[in-house]
Design a protein around this nucleic acid. Structure first.
Lengths: 130, 130
DNA sequence: AAGAAAATGAGAATTATTTGCATTTATTTT
DNA sequence: AAAATAAATGCAAATAATTCTCATTTTCTT
C-alpha cells in the first residue's frame, strides 16, 4: 500500500486552505482561494466539507460577520477583533479570557460551559485612516 | 395637544416587547409575542423596526444563533451564555470583561475598539438534565 | 382641513446555505 | 486485479432568513 496520498484530494485542499490563511474566510472566500489550484471544485463541496470539519471538531466557526459565516482552522480558544469597516477578522493570541469567568458563568447561569468566544469590534488600522 | 400617545404604535410595541423580555428574541419571536396584542402587525415591520432601532443604537444584536439573529434591548455591554441544546440566551450581568483587554486589543491589533462581546456556550440547566 | 412625511402590509426578490440525485472517485472484498 | 461497496463531488433545484418594492394608511406639520 502506498499510503493515503491521493485520498480526499479536494477535502484536503479545503482544510489546507483554511490552515494556510489567517483571514478567517467564508465558504465563498475558500472557494475563491482554491480556484488557482483546484478550478474544478464546487461551492457545494466547500460548504459540505466545512460543515463536516466543523462537526468533527477540526475547525471552528466564528459565527457570522455581515450575515456570512466565517471559519477558523485554529480550534484553540482565542480572541478575535472584527473590523466593522472591511469585515476583516484578526486573531489576538496574546489575549486570554480569565479562567474564573467560566466558573462564574456556570455558577450564575446554572449551566455547563463548553466554549467561549470573545470578540472585539471596531475599526482596523486601515479603516480608521480613510 | 394630548402628547404622543398614539404615535408609532406598532414601532413602540416592538420596542416595548424587547424591553419586557429576557429571551433575546429573534424577529420572528418578537412577531409571535406581539400576536396577542397586535395581531395585525407584519413580519416585515418587525424586521424594519428592529433594524431601525439597531441603527439608532437603541437595541443591540447578539449576532446569530443557529443562523437566526437575536436582539437585546439592553445596550450596555454584558456577557451572554448560549445553550447549544435549546438556543436559549441567558444574561450574565454579574460578569465583566476586564477593561485592560480592550487596551491590549488596540495595542496588538493596531485598531480602534468600539465594542466587545463575550459569549459562553454550553448546555443550560434544563438541557444538561435530559 | 390640506399637504407632506413617515410607517405599514403584502408579497416578490435576494442571498447565503442546504439538499437530491446522478456520476465519479476511493476503499474493501473476493 | 476485478467486482462490489462506500464515500465524495458537481450541478441545479430547494430552503429559509432577511430585505425590498410599491400601493395604502397613519401621523405630523402648517
Amino acid at each position: 500500500m502506498e499510503g493515503s496520498t491521493k485520498q480526499f484530494r479536494k477535502r484536503n485542499a479545503i482544510l489546507a486552505c483554511l490552515q494556510q490563511t489567517h483571514a478567517h474566510p467564508s465558504a465563498e472566500m475558500v472557494h475563491e482561494m482554491l480556484q488557482k489550484t483546484h478550478p474544478d471544485i464546487s461551492l457545494a463541496t466547500v460548504y459540505r466539507n466545512l460543515a463536516w470539519f466543523k462537526s468533527q471538531g477540526m475547525i471552528q466557526s466564528l459565527g457570522t460577520v455581515n450575515g456570512i459565516e466565517r471559519f477558523d482552522a485554529n480550534t484553540a480558544p482565542h480572541v478575535h477583533f472584527v473590523c466593522t469597516g472591511c469585515s476583516a477578522v484578526i486573531d489576538l493570541p496574546q489575549i486570554a479570557v480569565p479562567h474564573s469567568l467560566e466558573a462564574d458563568t456556570e455558577k450564575y447561569a446554572g449551566c455547563r460551559v463548553q466554549g467561549c468566544q470573545l470578540t472585539f469590534t471596531g475599526l482596523c488600522g486601515s479603516c480608521a485612516n480613510s
